[in-house]
Design a protein around this nucleic acid. Structure first.
Length: 203
DNA sequence: ATCAAGATTACCT
DNA sequence: GGTAATCTTGATA
Protein backbone atom coordinates (compact mmCIF):
# COMPACT_ATOMS: atom_id res chain seq x y z
CA UNK A 1 0.00 0.00 0.00
CA UNK A 2 1.36 3.36 -0.89
CA UNK A 3 0.25 6.87 -1.67
CA UNK A 4 -2.68 6.60 0.71
CA UNK A 5 -3.04 9.59 3.02
CA UNK A 6 -2.05 8.80 6.59
CA UNK A 7 -4.46 9.70 9.34
CA UNK A 8 -2.38 11.37 11.98
CA UNK A 9 -3.25 13.39 15.08
CA UNK A 10 -1.49 16.70 15.36
CA UNK A 11 1.33 16.20 17.88
CA UNK A 12 2.20 18.34 20.89
CA UNK A 13 4.94 20.00 18.86
CA UNK A 14 2.38 21.47 16.44
CA UNK A 15 0.59 23.33 19.23
CA UNK A 16 3.67 24.56 21.09
CA UNK A 17 4.47 27.14 18.40
CA UNK A 18 3.56 30.84 18.23
CA UNK A 19 -0.20 31.37 18.27
CA UNK A 20 -0.38 33.18 14.91
CA UNK A 21 1.36 30.31 13.14
CA UNK A 22 -0.81 27.68 14.80
CA UNK A 23 -3.95 29.68 13.97
CA UNK A 24 -3.15 29.79 10.24
CA UNK A 25 -2.00 26.18 10.18
CA UNK A 26 -5.23 24.96 11.82
CA UNK A 27 -7.19 26.01 8.74
CA UNK A 28 -8.13 22.94 6.71
CA UNK A 29 -7.44 20.52 9.57
CA UNK A 30 -10.14 18.16 10.85
CA UNK A 31 -11.40 18.38 14.43
CA UNK A 32 -12.80 15.14 15.82
CA UNK A 33 -14.87 14.35 18.91
CA UNK A 34 -15.72 10.85 20.13
CA UNK A 35 -18.87 10.29 22.20
CA UNK A 36 -18.94 6.61 22.94
CA UNK A 37 -19.23 5.10 19.48
CA UNK A 38 -20.55 8.27 17.91
CA UNK A 39 -18.08 10.43 16.03
CA UNK A 40 -18.33 14.11 15.17
CA UNK A 41 -15.93 15.73 12.75
CA UNK A 42 -15.51 18.88 10.71
CA UNK A 43 -13.00 20.91 8.73
CA UNK A 44 -11.77 24.07 10.43
CA UNK A 45 -12.42 27.04 8.14
CA UNK A 46 -12.21 30.09 10.41
CA UNK A 47 -10.16 30.92 13.53
CA UNK A 48 -8.94 33.84 15.63
CA UNK A 49 -5.72 34.19 17.62
CA UNK A 50 -5.62 35.50 21.21
CA UNK A 51 -2.31 36.22 22.91
CA UNK A 52 -2.61 37.31 26.53
CA UNK A 53 0.91 38.74 26.66
CA UNK A 54 0.12 41.65 24.31
CA UNK A 55 -3.58 41.38 23.48
CA UNK A 56 -6.14 43.19 25.63
CA UNK A 57 -9.00 41.21 24.10
CA UNK A 58 -7.63 37.93 25.43
CA UNK A 59 -9.13 36.37 28.54
CA UNK A 60 -5.56 35.82 29.73
CA UNK A 61 -4.40 39.45 29.38
CA UNK A 62 -4.72 40.20 33.10
CA UNK A 63 -3.14 36.98 34.29
CA UNK A 64 -4.24 33.60 35.48
CA UNK A 65 -7.69 33.10 37.04
CA UNK A 66 -9.79 30.08 37.83
CA UNK A 67 -11.61 30.41 34.51
CA UNK A 68 -8.63 30.86 32.18
CA UNK A 69 -6.15 28.55 33.92
CA UNK A 70 -6.17 26.16 30.95
CA UNK A 71 -4.94 28.93 28.64
CA UNK A 72 -1.68 29.10 30.60
CA UNK A 73 -0.79 25.46 30.03
CA UNK A 74 1.56 24.31 27.31
CA UNK A 75 0.07 24.06 23.82
CA UNK A 76 -2.30 21.25 22.92
CA UNK A 77 -5.08 21.63 25.49
CA UNK A 78 -8.74 22.46 24.82
CA UNK A 79 -10.09 25.64 26.46
CA UNK A 80 -13.88 25.99 26.57
CA UNK A 81 -15.69 28.90 28.21
CA UNK A 82 -19.29 29.99 28.71
CA UNK A 83 -20.43 33.45 27.70
CA UNK A 84 -23.49 35.69 27.40
CA UNK A 85 -25.31 33.28 29.68
CA UNK A 86 -26.09 31.24 26.58
CA UNK A 87 -23.14 30.08 24.53
CA UNK A 88 -19.91 28.15 24.80
CA UNK A 89 -16.80 28.85 22.73
CA UNK A 90 -13.93 26.44 22.17
CA UNK A 91 -10.24 27.17 21.79
CA UNK A 92 -6.92 25.45 21.20
CA UNK A 93 -4.14 26.43 23.63
CA UNK A 94 -0.81 27.24 21.96
CA UNK A 95 2.79 28.04 22.81
CA UNK A 96 4.76 27.27 25.93
CA UNK A 97 3.45 26.94 29.47
CA UNK A 98 2.72 30.37 30.91
CA UNK A 99 2.09 32.15 27.60
CA UNK A 100 -1.69 32.35 27.92
CA UNK A 101 -2.28 32.08 24.18
CA UNK A 102 -5.04 30.27 22.33
CA UNK A 103 -6.87 29.98 19.02
CA UNK A 104 -10.66 30.44 18.99
CA UNK A 105 -12.34 28.08 16.52
CA UNK A 106 -15.00 30.22 14.85
CA UNK A 107 -16.34 28.10 12.00
CA UNK A 108 -16.25 24.53 10.78
CA UNK A 109 -17.42 22.67 7.69
CA UNK A 110 -19.38 19.70 9.11
CA UNK A 111 -18.24 16.28 7.90
CA UNK A 112 -19.43 13.56 10.29
CA UNK A 113 -22.35 13.39 12.74
CA UNK A 114 -24.47 15.83 10.75
CA UNK A 115 -27.83 14.31 11.70
CA UNK A 116 -27.10 14.57 15.40
CA UNK A 117 -25.74 18.07 14.93
CA UNK A 118 -29.02 19.01 13.23
CA UNK A 119 -30.93 17.54 16.16
CA UNK A 120 -28.94 19.64 18.62
CA UNK A 121 -29.13 22.82 16.57
CA UNK A 122 -32.66 22.69 15.16
CA UNK A 123 -34.43 19.90 17.05
CA UNK A 124 -34.77 17.63 14.02
CA UNK A 125 -32.55 15.09 12.33
CA UNK A 126 -33.50 15.77 8.75
CA UNK A 127 -32.56 19.14 7.42
CA UNK A 128 -32.30 20.55 3.94
CA UNK A 129 -28.77 20.50 2.54
CA UNK A 130 -29.15 24.25 2.36
CA UNK A 131 -29.08 24.37 6.17
CA UNK A 132 -25.75 22.56 6.44
CA UNK A 133 -24.00 25.91 6.25
CA UNK A 134 -25.87 27.05 9.38
CA UNK A 135 -24.84 24.09 11.54
CA UNK A 136 -21.38 25.19 12.67
CA UNK A 137 -20.72 28.65 11.17
CA UNK A 138 -20.04 30.43 14.45
CA UNK A 139 -18.23 29.66 17.73
CA UNK A 140 -21.42 29.17 19.74
CA UNK A 141 -23.01 27.06 17.02
CA UNK A 142 -19.98 24.75 16.88
CA UNK A 143 -20.23 24.05 20.59
CA UNK A 144 -23.97 23.41 20.37
CA UNK A 145 -23.55 21.02 17.42
CA UNK A 146 -20.59 19.17 18.94
CA UNK A 147 -21.89 19.46 22.54
CA UNK A 148 -18.76 21.13 23.80
CA UNK A 149 -19.10 22.69 27.25
CA UNK A 150 -16.97 23.51 30.26
CA UNK A 151 -16.60 19.84 31.15
CA UNK A 152 -14.41 19.57 28.03
CA UNK A 153 -12.15 22.43 29.08
CA UNK A 154 -8.69 21.13 29.90
CA UNK A 155 -8.90 18.06 27.65
CA UNK A 156 -5.57 17.05 26.14
CA UNK A 157 -5.81 17.29 22.34
CA UNK A 158 -3.12 14.64 21.99
CA UNK A 159 -5.54 12.25 23.72
CA UNK A 160 -8.38 10.23 22.19
CA UNK A 161 -11.59 12.10 23.18
CA UNK A 162 -11.10 15.31 21.20
CA UNK A 163 -8.24 15.79 18.77
CA UNK A 164 -7.32 17.32 15.43
CA UNK A 165 -6.20 15.40 12.36
CA UNK A 166 -3.36 16.64 10.21
CA UNK A 167 -4.11 17.60 6.61
CA UNK A 168 -2.00 19.09 3.82
CA UNK A 169 -1.11 22.74 4.33
CA UNK A 170 -3.05 25.35 2.42
CA UNK A 171 -1.46 27.79 0.03
CA UNK A 172 -1.02 31.31 1.36
CA UNK A 173 -3.32 32.57 -1.39
CA UNK A 174 -6.19 30.48 0.03
CA UNK A 175 -6.08 32.19 3.44
CA UNK A 176 -7.97 35.39 4.17
CA UNK A 177 -7.01 37.76 7.00
CA UNK A 178 -9.13 40.34 8.83
CA UNK A 179 -9.78 42.03 12.15
CA UNK A 180 -11.40 39.90 14.83
CA UNK A 181 -15.15 39.80 15.38
CA UNK A 182 -17.15 40.69 18.47
CA UNK A 183 -14.44 42.26 20.65
CA UNK A 184 -14.10 45.78 22.07
CA UNK A 185 -10.38 45.93 22.88
CA UNK A 186 -7.32 45.50 20.65
CA UNK A 187 -9.76 45.65 17.76
CA UNK A 188 -7.12 46.70 15.23
CA UNK A 189 -5.14 43.44 15.30
CA UNK A 190 -5.58 41.45 12.05
CA UNK A 191 -5.74 38.11 13.82
CA UNK A 192 -8.76 36.46 12.21
CA UNK A 193 -7.90 33.85 9.58
CA UNK A 194 -10.24 32.00 7.25
CA UNK A 195 -10.35 29.86 4.12
CA UNK A 196 -11.24 32.32 1.39
CA UNK A 197 -13.68 30.32 -0.70
CA UNK A 198 -15.45 28.51 2.15
CA UNK A 199 -19.26 28.63 2.33
CA UNK A 200 -19.13 27.78 6.02
CA UNK A 201 -17.71 31.03 7.44
CA UNK A 202 -19.41 32.88 10.30
CA UNK A 203 -19.95 35.99 8.16
C1' DA B 1 -22.66 41.78 48.34
C1' DT B 2 -23.20 44.02 44.21
C1' DC B 3 -22.38 45.06 39.47
C1' DA B 4 -21.06 45.50 34.62
C1' DA B 5 -19.37 43.17 30.69
C1' DG B 6 -19.10 39.57 27.78
C1' DA B 7 -14.16 36.04 21.87
C1' DT B 8 -22.85 35.20 20.53
C1' DT B 9 -27.09 34.09 18.46
C1' DA B 10 -31.85 34.37 16.96
C1' DC B 11 -35.46 36.99 15.93
C1' DC B 12 -37.59 41.48 15.19
C1' DT B 13 -38.73 45.70 12.17
C1' DG C 1 -29.87 47.37 11.50
C1' DG C 2 -31.38 46.70 16.49
C1' DT C 3 -31.79 44.08 20.67
C1' DA C 4 -33.34 40.53 24.14
C1' DA C 5 -31.89 36.39 26.20
C1' DT C 6 -29.39 34.70 30.31
C1' DC C 7 -25.69 33.76 33.77
C1' DT C 8 -20.78 33.41 34.90
C1' DT C 9 -16.85 35.77 35.98
C1' DG C 10 -13.80 39.18 37.76
C1' DA C 11 -13.53 43.58 39.88
C1' DT C 12 -14.67 46.59 43.48
C1' DA C 13 -16.52 47.49 48.30
Amino acid sequence: MKNLPTIKKLPRKFYKRPVLKVAKDLLGKIIVKHEGRKIFAGRIVEVEAYDGRIDEASHSFKGKTKRNEVMFREGGYFYVYFTYGVHHCCNVVTGEEGHGAAVLIRAIEPIEGIQTMAMRRFGKRKIDEKQFINLTNGPGKICQAFSFDRTHSGLDLTGSKVYIIDMPSLKKSQIGISKRIGISKSTELPWRFFIKNSKYLSR
